[in-house]
Simulated assay, not measured.
Amino acid sequence: MANVKWVVDPTHSEIQFKVKHLMITTVTGYFQKFNIEAETSDDKFTDAASVVFTADVDSISTNNEQRDTHLKSADFFDAAQHGEVRFVGTKYENTGGNDYKLHGDLTIKGVTKPVTVDVEFGGIVVDPYGQTKAGFTVSGKISRKEFGLTWNAVTEAGSVVVSDEIKLQAEVQLVKQA
């Protein structure tokens, strides 16, 4: 049997990141334009021969235009030079039940580092239009400084403005391709 191909259903998926601001509250951001493609050896998604995620840096939204412009600048993502965030999966392993670890290489701002995220497999369903869909909740953490996103400022009291740790959260629905 040939590998089964899956692509993201963007209207039923979201890619978020969360960062502490002033170390007292959390700001949530989204990538509004992204793509995910996967290949499995069967249609049950028990393995993944390939997983590739890309996000358009210019599509970042934190519901604040001034902050979004700053995030796209050279202080952070440098969208003009590095317009894409990319993750290429290298291993998809079951850790028990519907829980998986997805290992791969994440590239942000020209820097590639190994990253592992937790994946909760929500199952497979055929929607009312006859499409086979697989659902996942993905979570993880990265250090933004490891990827060259080093900008920061300090408050009068000595607190940092933006935390190093970035929490990743995604709800992903993939559609099986004919």
Rank of each mutant, 00 (worst) to 15 (best):
F87Y: 12
D58H: 11
F53S: 06
L22N: 07
A48Y: 12
D58V: 03
H70S: 13
D78L: 14
V115C: 01
A55Q: 08
A48P: 11
K18N: 15
I60K: 06
D105H: 08
N35L: 04
L71K: 03
Q66S: 12
Y92A: 05
P114R: 03
A49H: 13
V117Y: 01
D78S: 12
R67E: 12
A80W: 03
A74G: 14
T26P: 02
E93G: 07
E93N: 09
I15F: 10
G29S: 03
M23I: 08
K72W: 11
F17Y: 06
F121D: 07
D68V: 05
A55L: 10
V125Y: 07
V88W: 00
D127N: 15
T25D: 13
G83H: 13
G83Y: 01
H12I: 06
D75Y: 08
D42L: 02
T25R: 05
Q16H: 14
P114E: 13
D68A: 03
G122I: 05
D127T: 05
S59L: 11
V52T: 15
D127S: 09
E93P: 00
G97D: 15
V115L: 14
I24H: 03
S59N: 11
P114C: 02
E14A: 09
V111H: 00
K20L: 13
V51N: 10
D43L: 11
S13C: 07
F76M: 10
L102C: 09
H12Q: 10
R86P: 08
G89I: 03
V19Y: 00
G110V: 04
T116K: 06
G97K: 09
I124E: 03
V125I: 14
I124N: 03
E14W: 07
I108N: 08
S50P: 00
P114L: 04
T107A: 09
E93S: 14
